[in-house]
Write a protein that binds this DNA or RNA. Structure first.
Length: 837
RNA sequence: GCCGAUGUGGCGAAAUGGCAGACGCAACGGACUUAAAAUCCGUUGGGCUUAACGGCCCGUGCCGGUUCGAGUCCGGCCAUCGGUACCA
């Protein structure tokens, strides 16, 4: 941009103060025991999600959250808190590695360059970070402890009795490797043949690689897994009290996906042409176990479906169907994930020839395989209840399977509870399709809706192939055609049915989670090496004394065609001893970000990942009361309830984007809980209060990206308007949480405002020099001025607490407008105004 | 499909159930200036009315409800954005 007149000399003011801040270590927070530490001050921890230092540098989106936290940090310091406000770098990861592959330059070099660029930008923006606590995940003094934490995980197991992680030494079983929280398993991964590498789920979009758009296939590989599923229950339960946006909590809950239900065993029916006569008897006693959330619909199970990959498939397929089944399985495994989801609307499957017995109705039902049943969830097998499940209905229609209705829609509140047909033998079940009288009586008459009591017996017909819009009734209602539970409401029926199954030894209550164990290894160069060696096909930890385990110096970082990790090229490094070789995989990028907030508490500690006293001090949950003992608690609008709940007291703050709602935030909580269980931490949750900043769009209203050429570099803005105008505009744009477009005119406006503030106090003479304005006077403010002054103090304090920075700035504008016209300005009022950002 | 968020001037946005549009941008008019920039002052949701001061009506995505009173609360839709996708 060309030479432009500065509305006020920010280019002189800002660098001057910024370097003074550094010199005086103004933002350094002393730890307990350090010089300058004042135990009388309460602590406050304001955390930003640390950035990945990419080659492109920061754009104006990054500093939005950083500006908000910076205001809070400064505000809390003014109020007498000992404030921890750190910054660091999440520097392992794919982009640096890919850049290295392209240019041959070692990722460490580019990483350092990128960090330097990011840091320059952040410093010029003028944030009040305690740079003495800066950390970098690729620094050996840091990842030494990432590796150490991995070994803690590796050396522990989840004790189901205590529901806690415990040292593996407390495990009394004989195969400790089978219960470790870090374990090795052969699992399908996203393999991209074109790129010759394995990709994380996040890097696969619609079955294609995010980079290049190449097809990705599932392929089994030996991988390290972390047993996050053991913590599923706690990850849900302990989410509840956190001051997080409800939306994020919901996202995590859904991701974990808890469903309560029952496992039910279906005995296989004897089939004449079972393939192995010798094992016929065994086969006859075999059962298929399914998971269902609707045990109350057991009588409606008219067929079963196994996932094509289900291990039982081979054993129960009849000779006659063997080829068809093999074909289908081949077809399915050839499908990419994309195709498999694409075909989701058109269900397919084949009959195995086998039959099972519905334990309730004792009816013989066919066993199919179909790819709409997933091996990875539940038991990999389902009972098909077409009348009450949309997917089952679609499948049953396509293959002409029987549809049996067993739940009747009930008018709300009218459901009868007693009078169940307990004691009726299930054998008598089928012929009768009788609606119990109680149901009929309870029903409110509603003749125009078809599916009410009188018409129930014929309801089955409604599902005929031609009735395209007849839908499965999946809501709660009243059980019918189910002798054991007829007349019971769905919830009651579920309970009775499950009780009955448990009594009969045919099933049990279970809870299932969508959450899978965390695939923790990557076939990449630029990540933390595992502190693990292999000896005789068995893994073992290397001693702590050998940490940090540095990656080998390599010149060729390219992934191999076979999926063998690039570390394999470092022959010397790989050889650990005559009998042992090193683990070749590296950890995923999330490893470093799982605990960085802990390291900030005590970044220099060389004997522990975080000192105990520092951890207790900074991570403690008790809301620090202000020294005066009266931290303002403010009533807020219900709209702002999320923020308001968290506004109270000194609850620590974590600000970042929604994109980490499930991944980083879930992984970090998981690690935190393990470390807590093992006695290394004083709290069981890492982040008490979370706020998401919204995305900043380009001026064209599109997401900022190189592709649209709408990316804005903070340094360009600062060159023209100064860092204060930049930060002030970021906050004035609108509510923090909201998505909003950038506007240079808006920056201009805010810059004018700051210039007006400047000119309230300063005046430019003929020579272009600034001097104190003669309008300043030692006079008391008049009544209306006093009113504005106090309104501003009140509004700004309240708004900062509530993170409503845009309205705080608006109020300060009102203040300034009120004083610009007056001929003489009360000095006291002007001093008050310098509550500014 | 499901889940979530959002919907107010030309634009970014304000508004404990109580005067809708604070504050800013843009636009227009004026002052200063030879002129411009900068700065300062004024007007700015729509419509009707008055010579004028002023007055009146309509307006917060759509339809309905609760209330003395609804942008705000309740019910039902619509649109946009984001997440998710056969999880039994």
């Amino acid at each position: 941009m060309s030479e432009r007149r500065k509305p006020y000399p920010f280019d002189a003011i800002e660098p001057k103060w910024q370097s003074l801040w550094d010199e005086r270590r103004l933002f350094h927070a002393p730890n307990p025991g350090e010089p300058g530490f004042d135990p009388a001050r309460p602590k406050y921890y304001v955390l930003d999600m640390f950035p990945y230092p990419s080659g492109a540098g920061l754009h104006v989106g990054h500093p939005e959250g950083y500006t908000a936290t910076d205001i809070i940090a400064r505000y809390k310091r003014f109020r007498g808190f000992n404030v921890l406000h750190p910054m660091g770098w999440d520097a392992f990861g794919l982009p640096a590695e890919q850049y290295a592959i392209r240019t041959g330059q070692h990722p460490e070099i580019t990483t350092h360059e990128n960090i330097a660029r990011f840091k320059t930008q952040l410093k010029r923006i003028g944030f009040s970070y305690d740079w003495e606590r800066e950390i970098t995940t690729t620094d050996p003094t840091y990842f030494r402890w990432t590796q150490w934490i991995f070994l803690q995980i590796y050396n522990s197991w989840f004790n189901p009795d205590t529901r806690r992680a415990e040292p593996i030494s407390s495990y009394t079983g004989d195969d400790s490797d089978s219960v470790r929280l870090a374990y090795v398993a052969e699992v399908p991964v996203n393999w991209c043949p074109e790129l010759g590498t394995v990709l994380a789920n996040e890097e696969v979009i619609d079955g294609k690689s995010e980079v290049g758009g190449f097809p990705v296939v599932r392929r089994p590989m030996r991988q390290w897994m972390l047993r996050i599923t053991a913590f599923a229950e706690r990850l849900i339960d302990e989410l509840e009290p956190l001051a997080w946006p409800e939306g994020i909590k919901l996202l995590q809950r859904n991701w974990i996906g808890k469903s309560e239900g029952a496992e039910v065993q279906f005995p296989l029916a004897q089939v004449p042409d079972l393939p192995w006569a010798a094992t016929r008897e065994l086969e006859a006693r075999a059962t298929i176990t399914v998971f269902t959330t609707r045990p109350d619909t057991l009588y409606g199970a008219t067929y079963m479906v196994l996932a094509p990959e289900h291990p039982l498939v081979d054993r129960l397929t009849t000779n006659e169907k063997r080829d068809a089944v093999a074909d289908y399985r081949a077809q399915v495994s050839a499908k990419s994930d994309l195709e498999r989801t694409d075909l989701a609307k058109d269900k397919s499957g084949v009959f195995t020839g086998a039959y099972a017995i519905n334990p309730a109705s004792e009816e013989r039902i066919p066993v199919w395989i179909a790819d709409y049943v997933l091996m990875g969830y539940g038991t990999g097998a389902i009972m098909g209840v077409p009348a009450h499940d949309e997917r089952d209905l679609e499948f049953a229609r396509r293959y002409g399977l029987r549809i049996q209705e067993v739940v009747l829609p009930a008018a709300p509140g009218s459901a009868p509870v007693s009078g169940a047909g307990f004691g009726v033998s299930p054998k008598q079940a089928f012929p009768k399709v009788e609606v119990p009288d109680k149901v009929r009586e309870g029903e409110t008459p509603a003749p125009e809706t078809g599916a009410l009591p009188g018409s129930a017996p014929s309801a089955v017909l409604n599902y005929g192939d031609t009735a395209g819009h007849a839908e499965a009734f999946i809501d709660d209602g009243v059980a019918i055609n189910s002798p054991l539970i007829d007349g019971l409401t769905t919830s009651e029926a579920k309970r009775r049915m499950t009780d009955w199954l448990e009594e009969q030894g045919l099933g049990r209550r279970t809870i299932n989670y969508k959450l899978r164990d965390w695939l923790f290894s990557r076939q990449r160069y630029w990540g933390e090496p595992f502190p693990i060696v292999w000896r005789d096909g068995k893994h073992e930890a290397i001693p702590d004394s050998e940490l940090p385990l540095l990656p080998p110096p390599l010149h060729d970082f390219k992934p191999t065609a076979t999926g063998e990790p690039p570390l394999a090229r470092a022959k010397e490094w790989v050889r650990y001893s005559d009998q042992a070789t090193r683990e070749l995989n590296t950890m995923p990028q999330w490893a470093g970000s799982c605990w960085y907030y802990l390291r900030y508490c005590d970044p220099e500690n060389s004997s522990r990942f975080v000192g105990q006293e520092a951890e207790r001090y900074w991570m403690s949950v008790e809301a620090g009361a202000s020294p005066a003992g009266r931290e303002p608690t403010l009533p807020r609008s219900p709209k702002a309830a999320d923020t308001a709940a968290a506004t109270l007291g000194g609850v620590d703050l974590y600000v970042g984007g929604t994109e980490h709602a499930v991944l980083h935030l879930l992984y970090a909580r998981f690690w935190h809980k393990m470390l807590f269980d093992l006695g290394h931490l004083s709290t069981s949750e890492p982040f008490q209060r979370l706020v998401n900043q919204g995305i900043i769009l380009g001026e064209d209203g599109r997401k900022m990206s190189k592709r649209w050429g709408n990316v804005i570099d903070p340094l360009d803005v600062i060159a023209d308007y100064g860092a204060d105008a930049f930060r002030c505009y970021e906050m004035f744009m609108g509510p923090l949480e909201q998505m909003k477009p950038w506007s240079m005119n808006g920056v201009e406006g805010v810059s004018r405002f700051l210039a007006r503030v400047w000119r309230l106090l300063m005046e430019e003479n003929q020579a272009g020099e600034w001097a104190l304005s003669p309008t300043l006077a030692e006079i008391p403010p008049d009544k209306p001025q006093l009113k504005v002054i106090h309104a501003t103090i009140k509004k700004v304090s309240e708004d900062i607490e509530a993170l409503s920075f845009n309205t705080a700035i608006a109020q300060m504008m009102i203040f300034v407008n009120a004083f610009t016209t007056t001929a003489s300005r009360p000095v006291a009022a002007m001093r008050t105004l310098l509550l500014l950002l």
